[in-house]
């Protein structure tokens, strides 16, 4: 899977605020992207679930996620997919290496890998759409808005993320490899 990046996003992560990049930087992004493609092993998983919800909590298989925003986000959804994706450990190692020997490259790698992760998520969510032949809602991730980051633990348990994807959680609920995403994706079946 060759993951493209979105140049505007990469520049935004790098703090360009709409300014355009010079040739040197564009070349740098291109060459870092090439390196990232070589070391990444992008993967995603998802599973569709029935859910119950109130105004403030979403319940899947007896496990509750407290978030008003998530509940309203899923208000027209029939089911929900739990989705997780990662670029693998290769991106982290590359960024780490450059943060020692070439910090400009490290910053660019960080931004480019972040954008590639988004691309991977888009590809994965397209797949959800295809496989259920349904409409889907935008991704809603643990840690976003009023959904506590600590909900990651339950999310991981439900989808069996560690075993199936190789992504694990630190004590403080951060994901490693760091270029990883988890999200709830609302599914709207054709009526």
């Amino acid at each position: 899977m060759l993951l493209e990046y979105d140049l505007n996003e990469v520049l935004r992560y790098l703090g360009y605020r709409g300014a355009s990049a010079d040739r040197q930087t564009l070349g740098l992004i291109g060459s870092v992207h090439k390196e990232l493609c070589e070391v990444c092993s992008p993967k995603y998983i998802f599973r569709e679930y029935e859910f119950q919800k109130t105004d403030s909590a979403l319940t899947i298989n007896g496990i509750s996620f407290k978030s008003k925003k998530l509940c309203s986000h899923l208000k027209n959804s029939d089911t929900v997919a739990l989705f997780a994706a990662t670029l693998g450990t290769g991106a982290d190692t590359l960024i780490k290496k450059y943060s020692v020997c070439d910090k400009g490259r490290a910053a660019v790698a960080q931004a480019t890998a972040a954008s590639m992760t988004e691309t991977l998520c888009d590809i994965g969510c397209m797949k959800i759409k295809e496989s259920c032949s349904c409409e889907i809602r935008p991704r809603f991730s643990p840690g976003f808005s009023d959904l506590e980051l600590s909900s990651q633990r339950d999310f991981f348990k439900l989808l069996d993320v560690s075993k199936r994807l190789g992504v694990t959680l630190t004590e403080s609920c951060l994901m490693v490899p760091t270029k990883s995403v988890t999200a709830f994706v609302g599914i709207i079946k054709e009526k």
Binding site: L11, R17, A19, A21, T25, L28, G104, A107, V108
Partner: peptide, 13 residues
């Protein structure tokens, strides 16, 4: 805002 993060870092390096 005329120099950005990659430029700043490459200079520093």
């Amino acid at each position: 805002n005329t120099v950005f993060l990659p430029g700043l870092l490459m200079s520093a390096e």
